[in-house]
């Protein structure tokens, strides 16, 4: 029987590609990233192609996701968040579809790869820090000292604030990666039970059904959490507390 973590194995598809000494071969992970892009692109463009005044079901789904993220940006970042809306909407749809595609049997969940989530989180972190620096210059560093705190607390507060700021990309990426990995591992384990127990496998099968529903919830929730935290960090960068 296969290991429950074997599903996370990266497998090369097609010929191996090496550029500048780096292996950039097309893999199962890459396939699902491209697939997610494709699904999001087709979903959001084709559903709107009718441009119905009274939306069809699929069109109202697309509009719903648009307005969901538009409201999220408006409420959590404010009107200054408008230029970042395309990025945040793309981010949400990419993670959401990535998570949900992973729920299809035999598919691959690229969001269960720490390197993928970390690459996204660190990019967001660096970009947001740059936005803050451009917007506030050196004034940005007052962010690490909460206003109103007594000055003698500075030696304690500043390292804590810096540490918590630096841990943002870590917590952001680990949260998504760990949720996806743990969920899929658990499902694989229960799948193993179903096979191993034969007729009595019905019991873990029921658990597996419930778990599948739960994992779909987690898939949506984690995409939401990742996106809303990005919005909150962006708010901090624009408004400094």
């Amino acid at each position: 029987m296969a290991s429950p973590v074997e599903q996370f194995q990266i497998k090369t598809i097609g010929p191996e590609l090496h550029v500048a000494g780096m292996d950039i071969s097309f893999t199962n992970s890459a396939l699902f990233m491209i697939l997610a892009t494709f699904v999001v692109g087709v979903f959001l463009t084709q559903s709107m192609s009718g441009r119905h005044l009274v939306p069809t079901r699929i069109q109202s789904l697309a509009e719903l996701s648009y307005e969901f993220i538009a409201n999220m940006v408006r409420e959590n970042v404010g009107p200054e968040g408008r230029p970042y809306f395309p990025f945040i909407f793309s981010l949400f749809m990419f993670i959401l579809v990535g998570n949900l595609l992973g729920m299809i049997p035999y598919s691959y969940t690229f969001t269960s790869q720490i390197i993928v989530t970390f690459a996204m989180a660190i990019t967001i972190f660096v970009a947001i820090t740059i936005v803050a620096l451009i917007k506030h210059g050196f004034h940005f560093f007052t962010f690490f000292f909460p206003s109103g705190a007594p000055v003698y607390m500075a030696p304690l507060l500043i390292p804590i604030e810096i540490l918590s700021y630096l841990s943002r990309p870590v917590s952001l990426s680990v949260r998504l990666f760990a949720n996806m990995m743990a969920g899929h591992t658990m499902m694989k384990v229960f799948g193993g039970f179903v096979v191993a127990l034969g007729v009595f496998g019905v019991a873990p099968l029921l658990v597996l059904v419930a778990l599948t529903g739960f994992e779909i919830l987690v898939a949506v929730l984690q995409a939401y959490v990742f996106t809303i935290l990005t919005c909150i960090y962006l708010y901090d960068a624009i408004h400094l507390h």
């Binding site: 780096m22 692109g41 690459a119």
Partner: peptide, 16 residues
Amino acid sequence: TYPTQIFWLIVSFILL
């Protein structure tokens, strides 16, 4: 596996 994943992440996300 990191270089390929980062590379394809960048490609697909920019495309998206």
